[in-house]
Lab assay of single mutants.
Amino acid sequence: MQRVNMIMAESPGLITICLLGYLLSAECTVFLDHENANKILNRPKRYNSGKLEEFVQGNLERECMEEKCSFEEAREVFENTERTTEFWKQYVDGDQCESNPCLNGGSCKDDINSYECWCPFGFEGKNCELDVTCNIKNGRCEQFCKNSADNKVVCSCTEGYRLAENQKSCEPAVPFPCGRVSVSQTSKLTRAETVFPDVDYVNSTEAETILDNITQSTQSFNDFTRVVGGEDAKPGQFPWQVVLNGKVDAFCGGSIVNEKWIVTAAHCVETGVKITVVAGEHNIEETEHTEQKRNVIRIIPHHNYNAAINKYNHDIALLELDEPLVLNSYVTPICIADKEYTNIFLKFGSGYVSGWGRVFHKGRSALVLQYLRVPLVDRATCLRSTKFTIYNNMFCAGFHEGGRDSCQGDSGGPHVTEVEGTSFLTGIISWGEECAMKGKYGIYTKVSRYVNWIKEKTKLT
């Protein structure tokens, strides 16, 4: 034993070699072989497995989906700052455009905790909710729209109204504003409101030439003092309507412009014939205590009207009353817009006519005020429907199939267009061939041609 100890002390290297040989010859039971080890760690190889990531292109799944990435790591994937920024906006807080917040056709661009709407022409605001041009839906104005110097929408209202708090709607500024039905039992019968379409306001006024200088022999019209197929109006439903009495009662109609003036057809009036105007009328054979009678003290036909040349060209006249009318729910003026808007309103496509005229061709006159909704007829169809001249200051309205029309005794009465609950004068009943005849239409004086003249002559002093 002493000898062994001496050998170990003198030859430590020998001992180490012996131990190493023993270990190498022993069977290893701690580690699995290569094949079995792979069965336990069965993990798919990654895209760049075996390579240094710093030297390969980034992978979106590896960089940002398996674990949260930084902007720089995302930049490695896209290799483009702009594309990385677009991805980053949604990656950080989701897609803010998912709810489609942009209105009126706006395009949404996502941002971090926010979004941006790219608005089409005519709109602005956070969600493109603000109209900035009158060309689109009248700028959301209830009545009139004008573009300011910086191309912003400025709404306005006709006389007797003021802008509401929203700067879009119009509200009454006087007790009985024009064009409004205020009798409670008839307010439910107000005709369907007309909503502004998209309009090209630059070209809204037709490029028409008034044929002022045409000389033409007097034409022989049949029954051209021209509501057939209409309905009984309720008291106060058309408070701007008046009836004219002269040699015979209810020979023509008219509309209240203001307390002192009536507008009617020029062919209705004769110099030297006494005319009485009755406002607030409903049943011409009954006294309903809503009527107001006034005498006409002055007749002003349009300066281009000449019955000797043509009885229905420039067929418009103004009547001055001896005493002002007292405005109330049964006696209310009709609204008159400017030339541009009167023309736009007419193009809405349908209007209402009213009167006490004959209820059928050569038949009896109506006792109760009649009204009828009539569609506008395109000019080409209008011209083809008659052998008589249709001037540019006239328009056609009615039904091709016949059966409904204005008729004798309705002449001078109103053709009105309702705009968001307020009625505007767009025409004056003038003439036609018979009444409600198939293929024939009622012919009306186009008020847009005469609004400046009306307003100039009827100013209240």
Rank of each mutant, 00 (worst) to 15 (best):
C97K: 03
D315E: 02
K455I: 06
K45A: 03
V242M: 01
Y115S: 04
N59D: 11
T225P: 09
P333G: 04
E259G: 04
I275N: 03
Q143F: 04
N306H: 09
E285S: 11
G413Q: 07
V174L: 07
L367I: 12
N245E: 07
L103V: 10
W88D: 02
E159K: 07
I297E: 05
S329H: 09
I300A: 04
Y161H: 05
S182V: 09
Q167Y: 09
A308M: 10
K440M: 05
C155K: 01
Q57W: 00
C134G: 03
E286I: 10
S255I: 08
V296M: 02
A192T: 14
C97D: 03
F78K: 03
T209E: 11
N313H: 13
L130C: 07
A307P: 12
S220R: 07
N306Q: 08
N100M: 08
K446H: 05
Y201V: 11
T287F: 09
V154N: 09
S156H: 10
C170Q: 00
E27H: 08
K188T: 07
E288A: 07
R379G: 06
L189Y: 15
L52F: 10
A173G: 07
D232I: 15
E270K: 10
I344N: 10
T209C: 08
C252K: 00
C128W: 03
Y450N: 02
F123Q: 06
G357Q: 15
K459T: 15
K109V: 11
S354Q: 10
V4M: 13
N222Q: 12
S25P: 11
H302Q: 04
P301I: 11
L189C: 07
C155F: 00
Q370S: 11
H302F: 06
A308T: 14
R449P: 15
S107Q: 11
A173Q: 09
G355M: 05
D212Y: 14
K274A: 09
E86M: 10
T290C: 06
L460C: 08
S99H: 12
G253Q: 11
Q90V: 12
F176G: 02
Q96H: 13
N166L: 02
L321S: 01
E86P: 03
N59F: 03
K126D: 14
P177K: 01
P175L: 09
T16V: 09
W240N: 00
T461E: 12
N203D: 07
W453E: 00
V195C: 06
D322C: 03
P333C: 02
R43Y: 01
K68G: 06
R358I: 06
E288P: 06
R162D: 09
S148V: 10
F251G: 05
R379Q: 14
I344F: 13
R379K: 15
E434W: 09
A9K: 08
P44Y: 13
V451M: 03
N203Q: 07
S365P: 12
C407E: 04
P324K: 06
C157F: 01
